[in-house]
């Protein structure tokens, strides 16, 4: 029994990783087409990953080595667990009590891992990047919790991922209501911030912080950070599909709908990415606390009122 579960975890982890590298290619290709370029070939991300796996890993002399090495691997295992839980709920319709809360926690700890990895090197740029990551986390976390509350309330306080799907199959998708629409839009922006996609790549700001927390990483450890980034592009939009679009049904025409639901979210994210420059950290905090959080609160109140 345990062997089967481990196999399931391994399968979903590998599946998410491979799928993520391909979606990462979609991201790069669409961005290239938006800029009137040809863009990279299909297997580009695989080449990048295997190339990084074979390069030298440099440990910084003054850094804390075990934290430096552990952070990307811990982040990878966190994403493996998140994506397995989401896939299991979507495909096998299984879950356990309060697994949505676990997913929310793990998503937060991922950001903490970036902070730990970045600040363990002692590099100034990495430390600034880590500081910005914490501030961004403070900004988007509150909004993200409010966003997650809306489907919970609308599905009669179900905290279990598979129950949220089942309730939506009975009563219609959450996005069909006013509160659901507001929450979905806010959720999209929160996820953009959690994936650190432009305009929220404040922590990794390539032009001024030269990749911030990832600056000192090289070789296989960097490969894991890049892989984590691609896995997030798979797992987080799927969470939105689950919470707002009622998951998907993998029979007959349902597969087409499933792909469509996922692609709508990803293409929206890529378009937001390509049409917005990076915002400053204070602008981001202003946006999340002064604009997004009150809107999220309104959405929660509307959900309680049943609108």
């Amino acid at each position: 029994m345990i062997g089967l579960k481990l196999l399931l975890l391994l399968g979903f982890m590998l599946g998410t990783a491979v799928f993520g590298l391909i979606v990462g290619w979609v991201d790069r290709k669409v961005s290239a087409r938006v800029q009137f370029r040809v863009g990279p070939p299909l297997l580009q991300n695989f080449n990048d990953f295997f190339k990084l796996m074979g390069k030298e890993t440099i440990l910084v002399k003054e850094g804390i080595h075990w934290l430096f090495i552990a952070a990307p691997l811990a982040a990878f295992s966190m994403l493996a667990v998140i994506s397995t839980m989401i896939w299991v709920a979507l495909i096998l319709n299984q879950g356990f009590g309060g697994d949505l809360i676990v997913v929310m926690y793990l998503m937060m700890i991922y950001s903490v891992m970036i902070v730990i990895g970045g600040s363990s090197t002692g590099n100034v740029y990495s430390s600034i990047g880590a500081g910005r990551e914490i501030k961004l986390l403070l900004g988007d976390e509150l909004v993200f919790i409010l966003v997650c509350l809306v489907p919970i309330i609308q599905t009669n306080y179900a905290l279990q991922l598979d129950q949220i799907i089942a309730k939506q199959a009975e009563n219609g998708m959450v996005i069909g209501s006013v509160s659901g629409t507001i929450a979905f839009i806010l959720g999209l922006l929160c996820i953009q911030a959690k994936i650190a996609m432009p305009p929220f790549h404040i922590a990794e700001a390539e032009t001024e912080l030269v990749e911030g927390p990832l600056m000192e990483y090289s070789g296989p450890l960097l490969a894991f950070w890049k892989l984590n980034h691609h896995m997030m592009i798979v797992a987080y939009p799927l969470l939105l599909v689950l919470l707002f679009f009622g998951g998907f049904n993998l029979q007959g025409i349902g597969i087409l709908w499933a792909v469509l639901k996922y692609l709508v979210i990803v293409v929206l994210m890529i378009l937001i990415k390509n049409t917005n420059p990076r915002i400053r950290i204070d602008t981001a905090l202003h946006f999340f606390w002064r604009i997004a959080a009150p809107l999220g609160l309104i959405a929660v109140i509307l959900a309680v009122l049943g609108v």
């Binding site: 290239a32 030269v210 990832l214």
Partner: peptide, 12 residues
């Protein structure tokens, strides 16, 4: 980028 060439900011 179509050849896989990318500018990186960090020498690592």
């Amino acid at each position: 980028e179509r050849l896989g060439i990318k500018l990186v900011g960090s020498v690592r």
